[in-house]
């Protein structure tokens, strides 16, 4: 029995910035995201909390992207790679550094290309444009080093893909809770689940 799903998307996701001027240029002036809220707060609390500005951009759908700017706070790491929140040394592989990112949805190819056009004439041009399995995306890094993606669906997701995703996750949990997980073991376990369940689950979709 599934739990009732009552949440309504992202209220806000928040990130620190040491460059509020660049951040406003990127999100408000280049991308056109309206500023919709801000808090000017005197520091409080037990940790010598600095005074700060907490400001929000509308990213569509009434969802918001928020930043903290702390007066007087110095950067918290000196690594060359990563973003202002998390720095990585040369020993960390690039795929790992790039794994955490924010993807913003657009309706169609025309809108994706419109954001590409806005970025390409700015200080933060698009670094790559890729067609994945069923989505197409553009990527850049914002003034804080955060990776930002814009993406559009090339077709709607089908019910069988949701079924497949659930079989993948059930197989993944079985494999990672046993010794020595591997991709080969996952595919073997998933084959078992496909044969056990695909017929009756397909009948329900």
């Amino acid at each position: 029995m599934a739990l009732e799903h009552k949440v309504r998307g992202v209220d806000h996701a928040a990130f620190p910035t040491f460059d509020p001027a660049g951040t406003v240029r990127f999100y408000r002036d280049v991308l056109g995201f309206p500023v919709v809220h801000s808090i000017c707060a005197a520091g409080w609390g037990p940790e010598n909390h600095p005074d700060f500005i907490h400001f929000f951009f509308d990213i569509g759908n009434d969802d918001r992207l928020a930043f903290f700017y702390y007066f007087g706070l110095e950067p918290q790491h000196t690594q060359q790679r990563g973003d202002v929140y998390a720095g990585f040394g040369p020993e960390v592989p690039e795929f790992f550094v790039r794994s955490r990112h924010l993807a913003i949805h657009v309706d169609d190819e025309a809108d994706l290309l419109e954001y590409r056009r806005r970025l390409d004439v700015s200080e933060w041009p698009v670094e790559m444009q890729i067609q994945h399995e069923t989505i197409e995306s553009i990527y850049t890094h914002d003034p804080n080093g955060y990776m930002v993606e814009f993406t559009r669906a090339m077709r709607p997701v089908t019910p069988q893909e949701d079924l497949d995703a659930n079989l993948t996750i059930d197989a993944l949990i079985d494999v990672v809770t046993a010794p020595d997980p591997s991709f080969g073991k996952l595919l073997a376990r998933k084959a078992e689940l496909i044969v056990e369940r695909a017929d009756w689950e397909a009948a329900q979709v």
Binding site: I130, L167, L187, A188, K190, A191, E192, L193
Partner: peptide, 14 residues
Amino acid sequence: CRHAVWYSCVAGVA
């Protein structure tokens, strides 16, 4: 198949 599709097309192997 483009590469993203090709490398994710396998659902299971028995």
